[in-house]
Write a protein that binds this DNA or RNA. Structure first.
Lengths: 163, 163
DNA sequence: GCGATCTAGTTCAACTTTCAAGAAGTGTCC
DNA sequence: GGACACTTCTTGAAAGTTGAACTAGATCGC
């Protein structure tokens, strides 16, 4: 990092600022919406959604963490809390004795059934209702590009000179 | 909410999922980058940036909270921590005895000088280097629309029938 | 088979965030 | 000027997150 800093242009700064504002406001908004209506933060709700879409409503912890882009530590705490609520239960993984399966309970499923419509409405109102179809497409493409670039790959894959 | 839920289309779901992934990965990435290089989370760093750009490097707490899209409570805690680090100091507001000014110290300014280039590089690498100029423009416009829709306005302004 | 190494998941302590409550100052209306 | 409502900011406790350390089981190399 010995070269002169490559500062953002005015336009880039405006975009970056808008990105920070929009993402922060939206996450706060959804956190409050779900805390009020479902009694849990947005990310916990997302865990239940993941489980509900998995075969037999169950996933290995690591799998669930990867899908949700959170650390295993955070997931451990989250699942412990959801288990306390009776919305998730754990089982030992039969094929790998280190493994744990997180399983969506019927009670958990019912919470989703009850709260999903309101949540979708909130997402729609904040995002899709305000964007033109073209903008929604653009956003999808942009977010895919960014997500791909940030994906934690095998460290080695990024360091070919070490192979 | 008595009508049938207006579920997201497949395409919308893909976009929403990509949005969640990208924003989560990026925020985590920047948090780690700044925790490592500057010893504070991204949002704290953003507070110092705000202050550095304000006249006389100072802002009223409420102003700073609004600019940064965080609650005043959160800001109180954050500034207390930054004050402990010696990067910010507080002063009473002369014109309003309830008010507090948060002021960037020289030490705080130096932290920014030292760490800003690396942070900008991280932002660039994660976002602007991966997007075409057209996409960057689109993203800016999209984020402005979303932020505007989520702006906590006067409650009354949203409820004209109550005026 | 066995030691070295790697992976899955949890736990602990330190830190951050949230929400509700409260202290203190301002503004308004009469 | 005094009651009332509102704003500013802080505090404290509960909840959530982080990163490192740890246990247990799997896997690799020989």
């Amino acid at each position: 990092m010995t070269s002169a800093p490559n500062w953002l242009s005015d336009e880039e700064q405006r975009t970056w600022r808008a990105y920070l504002h929009a993402t922060r406001l939206l996450e706060d908004h959804l956190d409050r919406q779900l805390q009020r209506d479902a009694g849990m933060p947005h990310i916990y709700y997302g865990l239940l959604v993941q489980l509900s879409q998995a075969p037999r409503r169950r996933l290995r912890m690591t799998e669930l963490a990867k899908n949700s882009k959170i650390t295993r530590s955070r997931l451990s705490h989250a699942v412990a809390r959801l288990e306390n609520n009776g919305w998730v239960k754990r089982e030992d993984c039969p094929s790998d004795k280190r493994g744990q399966l997180a399983i969506l309970t019927d009670a958990g499923y019912e919470v989703l059934e009850r709260t999903a419509p309101g949540h979708v409405a909130a997402v729609r109102q904040a995002m899709f209702d305000r964007l033109t179809p073209e903008q929604a497409d653009q956003l999808g493409e942009i977010m895919r590009v960014m997500a791909q670039g940030l994906q934690p790959t095998d460290a080695k894959a990024d360091l070919p000179w070490l192979r």
